[in-house]
Amino acid sequence: MQTAQALLLAERAAEIRLRAVDAIYHAKSGHPGGSLSIADLLAFLYFQELRVNPADPHWPARDRFVLSKGHCCPALYAALAMRGFFPVEDLNTLRKLGSYLSGHPDMKNVPGVDMSTGSLGQGISAAAGMALVGKREGAPYRVYAVLGDGELQEGQVWEAAMFAGHYRLGNLIAFVDFNRLQIDGDVRQVMDPTPIDRKFEAFGWYAQVVDGHSFEQIESAVEAAKRNGEQTGKPSVIVCQTVKGKGVSFMEDQAGWHGKAPKQPEYEVAMRELTATLEDCRKATKGGVCNG
């Protein structure tokens, strides 16, 4: 990946984080921790990888994206708005009466959302359905899905894993946001889903583990996943090692920030930090260096 592209993606990720936290604050509820941990991945997907058309959200040949961990939609909504699917001004109507930006993604009302999700485990099955049709009908699209690490505790995820492996859905790429925390604490203490890569491999998938905050690593893993899918027909999982709450100092690595909104003083600190990161990124995009 060219430095300029990495800088651009870092800037987009910083903006996703800022807009997601801002929306959650104004909603007075929501899920900041997991929204922040997937911001880099979403920046890569929406500003480099996905073939989508904001002017025609239902374009039949588009790549599909399913946020199986639907509660992290503040980050998805930010990415979609920034990509041009709907006005960024609408982001702060999140979770409010009359807004189309519900607490979990609604495909009927949010442009760019390909599947309604929120109940964990179901999105990855739906993604497999889209991939199966794509494969059987020779459609050009790929299907991308993001799962949570805690979500892997849902049995349906493994029904879907068996299904995708069995039907050799090489056009399916799932990311696991391995931020190591769920509502009740460390995923390994609540109900250990590891080894994640070896479990998927046992179901016939091609598995890779990357730093989920490195655009270079995400990019090369996605390229390898696509090659492997075309050659072997195996679906791919990319386990993204991430930091929950990434980008807001007091939220990082804290399970307590899974599903609550910051109060005003916390919000001010968070916005200060996220704005500083975004400004650094903007300077760097012009100058060539970013600490974000």
Binding site: M115, Q122, G129, M130, V133, R136, A139, Q156, A160, H166
Partner: peptide, 26 residues
């Protein structure tokens, strides 16, 4: 056979896979 899908004994997955297929228009 090209339009039939046996999901094995996994009804939850079957219903959500069906949702994914239906989302493409069929």
């Amino acid at each position: 056979p090209e339009r039939f899908i046996n999901c094995g004994i996994a009804e939850a997955n079957m219903i959500s896979v069906a949702a994914g297929i239906a989302s493409t228009g069929a």
